[in-house]
Amino acid sequence: MNLRQKIATGAITLCSSTLVLFLGTWEGNGQNTVYADKLARGLPTVCKGITKHTSPDPVVVGDYWSDERCAEVEHLVIEKGQLALADCLTNQAIEQNTFDALTSHGHNFGMPSTCASRAVGLINAGRIADGCRALAKAPDGSPVWSYVTDAQGKKKFVPGLYARRLKEAELCAK
């Protein structure tokens, strides 16, 4: 049974409650006014990390989105991302928590980046525990996926991103 079949049978749930709560912790619960995300060089963002790159609707700084609109668009965006993620995961032994952790990562960095990551490569190779660790750490133990590039092109470590990566790795390995 491939991952799409596991989704169709309910063995893997799209937009699970665990994932929605996890994203709320890291992307913002009740963030109904569109803001310029400083970590993303001013990218307009709303709800649980919805941007112009993921939303079917315009995302304009200062606009207010109702709770209902946030929930509707979040659900759409998360499911679309998860279906893309399912297409790049070839290891059928993946469980819900691993799928949710990879979804969070992809929600933050984009599914193409997550699908091309060392973590997904390891997970697809059957090395799930190693892949989960790779969400937060390089082989030498240094942080990964925890940096932003500032306006001068300099890479800057962000402790909050690293904390999120560690929690994703923890969820992934559950």
Rank of each mutant, 00 (worst) to 15 (best):
T114D: 02
P44M: 07
N29P: 04
L122N: 01
V144N: 09
I128C: 00
Q92D: 15
R133H: 12
S55L: 05
A129T: 14
E170H: 00
L161P: 02
C172T: 02
Q96D: 07
F99K: 05
F109W: 14
W145M: 10
F22H: 01
H75F: 09
E79C: 15
I12H: 04
A125K: 09
K80I: 05
R165N: 04
V120G: 01
T18P: 02
D67A: 15
H105D: 11
L76Q: 15
Y64I: 15
G131L: 02
Q82Y: 09
V73Y: 04
L19P: 01
K174F: 05
V34K: 01
V46I: 09
R165V: 04
A40K: 06
R165E: 03
V73E: 03
A93N: 15
I123W: 01
K48W: 10
G153P: 04
P139I: 11
A8P: 01
L76I: 12
T13P: 00
D87Q: 14
P159M: 11
R127S: 14
L43P: 00
E79D: 13
G62N: 07
N2M: 08
S117R: 03
V148T: 11
F22L: 05
T54Y: 10
G24F: 10
N124G: 02
A116V: 03
A116S: 13
S16Q: 04
W65G: 06
D37I: 02
P44Y: 01
D63Y: 07
V60L: 08
D150C: 04
A11S: 13
R69T: 10
I78E: 03
K167H: 11
H105A: 11
L89N: 01
V61D: 00
K155N: 09
T9H: 07
Y162L: 08
V20L: 15
I123R: 02
A119F: 08
T103K: 06
Y64D: 10
Q5V: 13
V144Q: 04
Q152E: 14
V158D: 04
T25M: 11
E72S: 13
E95M: 13
H53I: 06
N32Q: 15
A84R: 15
L83A: 07
P143G: 10
G42T: 12
T25G: 04
